[in-house]
Each structure stands twice: as structure tokens, then as C-alpha cells.
Design a protein around this nucleic acid. Structure first.
Lengths: 111, 111
DNA sequence: CTGGATCCCTATCGATACTG
DNA sequence: CAGTATCGATAGGGATCCAG
């Protein structure tokens, strides 16, 4: 039998669900990527992520902020501005997803 | 501004969605992990993944098979046996998810 | 043992309209 | 600009029963 020894069984069983639940929800990864690659304003994020609506961004942003992945900074101008940035944890997560992107590329070639 | 240069923007924008859609659905990652770490039979997988129902496993298994991540082998005994194994692509995906598990561990510590 | 078929129910989503 | 409120539609999930 082909056993995978690159995989830490126990670690995955414990903690894989954690990140998958955070990042698996629709738009979440796209939002993280958008913020991580330069988008800071609410409207910039909706523009960067095609198909993402105001309502869903507001909802996801709240979730991601509460999870400590995104920092939300309100600038009291008129009209009000809001700056979204990744926290250290958010940046780490995005880096941890890089292998998935590579895998996706290979997978797309084969289909 | 803190730019992330560990991230290949373009690669992520193109292909991150691919893997996230496959692995983000409920139970999918758990099923992959279960098969990747020794479970081969239908009932072994439901036993390994707590909360997973027969119906959902049947459904996910079909999806994962069509995506080329899981190989399904029917053994014509009575009653019938079915062996599930990961394809090379499925093993690769599971390895690509390992950093997510590590991230999840760190994240859990901090909460 | 390995599912398929149903029923029902709720979470989630998209669209639209509105506000400080 | 950056959201909130409301609504109707639908996809997804749990439970249960059935079958090769």
C-alpha cells in the first residue's frame, strides 16, 4: 500500500478543519487575496473580486475581522473611509494557501 | 506598505479558486484525509470522519472521483466491496493542504 | 456492505432598495 | 463611500427508508 509520509496525520486531523472552514466559505479566499495584493478600500475589493456583492463583502469582512485575519481601520473623513489590511495571521494564511494555487494550476492543465 | 512577495499574485488569482472549490465543500477535505491515511472502505470512511452521513459520503465520493482525486474500485464479492484510494493528484492535493493544517494549529493556539 | 430515493428544512445567496 | 434591511429563490444538508 502506498502510504503518504509527507502528511502529518494527527496534525491534519486536528487542525485542517480550522483553516478549511475559514477559507472554504465562498469569496473568503478571494477577499483575502485581494487585500493581500493591494486592495485596501471596500470598493476596491468588490472591484477586484468579480461577482462579489456589497452584502457578501460586508458579511465576509466581518467574519474575517473576527477571526483575526483582517484588520479594519475607520478613517473619520466625509464621506467615511475604511482601510482593510491583512493581519500577520492573515498574511500567513495566504502564504499557506500558495501550494493550493500551484496544485490548482497543475490540475487545470490535466483537464 | 507591507507587500507580500512570497505570494505569486497572478498564480493565485488564476488557480486558487480551483482547489478551494474542490476542497472547500463540507466533508471533502476530511474524506480525502481519511482515505489518504488508511481508510479504504466506504464504512471505514464514515467511521473515520465523525458526523459524515452515508448520503453525503456517496455524494462527495462521486464528486471527488469525477475530479480525479479519488479512485473507486468495485470488488465483485457478495456483498459487494468497494475500495477507495487516492489518485496521484489526490495525494498531491493532500500534501498541498499540509501548510493549512500547520496554520490552523498556530491559529488555534492564539484563540 | 454500499449506496439510491425521498422528504423536509434551514442556511445562504443574489437582487433590490435604502442610509449615515 | 461603505455599508444595512428585506425578500424570495435555491442549493445543500439531515433523517429515514429502501435496494442490489
Amino acid at each position: 500500500m502506498t502510504q503518504i509520509h509527507h502528511i502529518d496525520d494527527d496534525l491534519c486531523r486536528r487542525y485542517l478543519a480550522t483553516s478549511v472552514e475559514l477559507v472554504g466559505k465562498r469569496w473568503s479566499s478571494g477577499i483575502l487575496l485581494a487585500i493581500g495584493t493591494g486592495a485596501t478600500r471596500f470598493s476596491e475589493i468588490t472591484a477586484a473580486v468579480t461577482g462579489l456583492s456589497d452584502r457578501l463583502l460586508a458579511q465576509r469582512a466581518k467574519e474575517l475581522e473576527q477571526a483575526g485575519l483582517v484588520h479594519r481601520e475607520v478613517i473619520a473623513t466625509t464621506p467615511v473611509q475604511v482601510r482593510y489590511t491583512l493581519t500577520a495571521s492573515g498574511r500567513d494564511l495566504l502564504e499557506a494557501m500558495q501550494p493550493l494555487a500551484h496544485w490548482g494550476e497543475r490540475w487545470n492543465r490535466a483537464h
